[in-house]
Structures are given as structure tokens and as C-alpha cells.
């Protein structure tokens, strides 16, 4: 069973429908026991970092997430909140990845948010090599710089972490649930992890 962590994230419904399309059993839950005993956990996210961290802390979900032992996939804001700090409203985050989330600073009138389809350069084998140079859908104004945990790089204004991995934690900045067949392939790659 896959647990999708239920909280005030905008894309929970989209993630659920994507899992339905893959014929995967899942439940959307904020029940700590159910999350702990799930085979895999998906931590979605669309929204603002500070409000969301407060929501998670009030329910002690921040501690719960950090201590999970099964494969966990953070999506978009979910990935950013797995870092230690976000510049978005000066927010201390969960701290699985010891990295700081920064705001895009346009150099030549690039638009922010970074919105639309951009290509992936995988650097870690948890992502199938055939997603190399394929396009996935991004919507974000903050980013994680390239670091030791980076497992795919995308360029917008500068290179940044499109995906990361540390131990049992996997994370993607883009929206696999909205990235057509390439996104489906990436969700499947995560579901194959143990």
C-alpha cells in the first residue's frame, strides 16, 4: 500500500489520479500509524513553505516524515520541505537533505515562476536513463541548488536540482503527476525502489 500524506497541498488530487492511472493501491491519509506501515510514502506539495510547515508541525507530521524508513517521494514543495531551510518566508524545514532552498533571481528578464516543460539530465540511477533529455512539467519560484544528493539537473537561469536522493528519501522538483508518460515512468521508477 502507498500512503499519500494528506495535508493542505494543492496537488493531492492530481497525485491520486496519477496513481489511479497506474493502477496502484494507495490511500490519502494523515494517520501516523497508516503512514508508518505503508510500503511507500508520497509527500506531495503545492503551496507556500511557511504555512505548510506550520500545518505539518501542528500535526507532528514533520517529525514523522523525517523518521520514515521506507521509500519516501517528495514532490515540488514536498521536495523543498525535505531540505533544512527555505528562503520562502524564512522557513526552517524538515531537514532530511542538509540543503537550503533559494529564490530564483532573474538575470535577463527570465519569468518567475519557472513554469512549463523543461528537460532533465539524470545523474543518478534511480531515474531510468531513458528519461535523459526528456521533458517534465515545472511550476516553482524557489529551487534547490545542485548538491551532493542531486540525481537530475535542469537549467533555468542556472542549473538546479530537478531530483534528489538520500538513503530512502527521493525527491523531485517537477510534477511527475502532470508530466505525461515521462512523469508516469518516473513514478514507476520510484515505486520500484525498496
Amino acid at each position: 500500500m502507498i500512503a499519500v500524506i494528506k495535508y493542505n497541498a494543492g496537488n493531492i488530487r492530481s497525485v491520486a489520479f496519477a496513481l489511479e492511472r497506474l493502477h496502484v493501491d494507495f490511500s490519502i491519509t494523515d494517520n501516523p500509524e497508516e503512514i508508518q506501515k505503508a510500503d511507500k510514502v508520497i509527500f506531495p506539495g503545492v503551496g507556500e513553505a511557511n504555512t505548510t510547515m506550520r500545518y505539518l508541525k501542528d500535526r507532528k507530521l514533520d517529525v514523522l516524515i523525517k523518521e520514515l524508513k521506507q521509500p519516501v517521494l517528495g514532490i515540488c514543495l514536498g521536495m523543498q520541505l525535505l531540505c533544512s531551510y527555505s528562503e520562502e518566508n524564512d522557513t526552517p524545514c524538515i531537514g532530511v537533505f542538509d540543503e537550503q532552498v533559494k529564490k530564483f533571481q532573474p538575470l535577463q528578464h527570465e519569468k518567475v515562476p519557472h513554469m512549463g516543460w523543461n528537460s532533465l539530465t539524470p545523474t543518478h540511477s534511480w531515474l531510468d536513463s531513458d528519461v535523459a533529455n526528456k521533458f517534465v512539467y515545472f511550476v516553482h519560484s524557489y529551487f534547490v541548488p545542485v548538491n551532493a544528493y542531486t540525481s537530475a539537473i535542469t537549467e533555468y537561469i542556472q542549473p538546479f536540482s530537478a531530483a534528489m536522493k538520500k538513503d530512502n528519501f527521493y525527491a523531485v522538483q517537477f510534477h511527475p503527476e502532470k508530466s505525461a508518460t515521462v512523469g508516469e515512468k518516473i513514478i514507476r521508477s520510484f515505486l520500484k525502489q525498496s
Binding site: F17, E20, R21, Y137, E177, K178, S179, A180, T181, G183
Partner: peptide
């Protein structure tokens, strides 16, 4: 639509 369409 959300159930069947895999793009934004």
C-alpha cells in the same frame, strides 16, 4: 478530465 488527462 483530471482523472484521465496527464498534463496540466
Amino acid at each position: 478530465i483530471a482523472r484521465h488527462v496527464n498534463i496540466p
